[in-house]
């Protein structure tokens, strides 16, 4: 579905893009076919496509989905329309620049974009108030501020033995099968996200997964 869309060149019609942005303000009920199709692609897949292949269409999609939200966040924090508009540029530029650093371990795409937007807004306001630049928003909200690695290991200690057993069998899978099983069962990604990450069609992913899991079950001795 996404592939079909990627073939269209949004930039071939810049006016069209502006019109569609403007129409977002008024119509939320009448989804045309294209928009309905677009909403089926997850924010995560779009962001990963921007990071992996500099996919401009995917970036335009993200812009359409988030620019209004970023503007609203900017208005709330700065109460200034000009600054809120500047924030769209600052935040979306940052999304483009940092997209290669995004992966699903960093949480949802919208959470990641929220963090970038809030941080750019914070720095923008500091700059405007001429506050010293010894620290920036990224020092205050480190991007990896989520779970601490040590605590994760604590929680998993009990499962360690079982896991190491499975890991042994894991090596007996073919490389493509192992990559898929890893995405789904270890990194906990959805089929769609894993396919986008590995850059393989969804159907291929599903068949590799089925074969990989069947082989693992066989090796471990679980009844199918």
């Amino acid at each position: 579905m996404y592939r079909n869309y990627a073939k269209q060149d949004v930039f071939s019609n810049e006016v069209g893009l502006t019109v569609r942005l403007a129409s977002m303000n008024t119509s939320t009920t009448s989804l045309d076919t294209e928009e309905a199709e677009d909403s089926a692609v997850s924010d995560e897949s779009l962001l990963i496509a921007v990071g992996n292949t500099q996919d401009i269409n995917a970036f335009n999609q993200l812009f359409e989905r988030f620019s209004k939200k970023i503007f609203a966040l900017g208005m709330k924090l700065t109460r200034n329309e000009q600054l809120a508009n500047d924030l769209i540029q600052e935040a979306m530029l940052n999304v483009w620049q940092k997209a290669p650093l995004y992966d699903l371990d960093k949480g949802s795409a919208k959470g990641w974009i929220f963090t970038l937007s809030r941080n750019r807004c914070f720095d923008m306001l500091r700059k405007q108030k001429r506050q010293p630049s010894t620290i920036s928003a990224d020092d205050i909200w480190p991007l990896e501020s989520g779970a601490e690695p040590a605590s994760v290991h604590d929680d998993m200690a009990g499962q360690q033995v079982e896991l190491s057993l499975i890991e042994g069998y894991f090596d007996q899978l073919s490389d493509p099968q192992r990559a898929v099983v890893e995405q789904i069962y270890i990194k906990d990604r959805t089929h769609e996200e894993a396919a986008a990450y590995l850059q393989i069609p969804l159907g291929t992913l599903k068949s590799r997964l089925r074969l990989g899991v069947a082989k693992l079950r066989n090796l471990i001795g679980v009844d199918q």
């Binding site: 930039f11 810049e14 006016v15 893009l17 502006t18 942005l21 990071g51 500099q54 401009i56 970036f59 335009n60 812009f63 620019s67 769209i88 540029q89 979306m92 530029l93 483009w96 620049q97 940092k98 997209a99 290669p100 650093l101």
Partner: peptide
């Protein structure tokens, strides 16, 4: 926003 978008996608990404 089209010129904004066009200039953004010309910026280098952080790898």
């Amino acid at each position: 926003y089209s010129s904004m978008l066009a200039s953004i996608v010309k910026s280098p990404q952080i790898k």
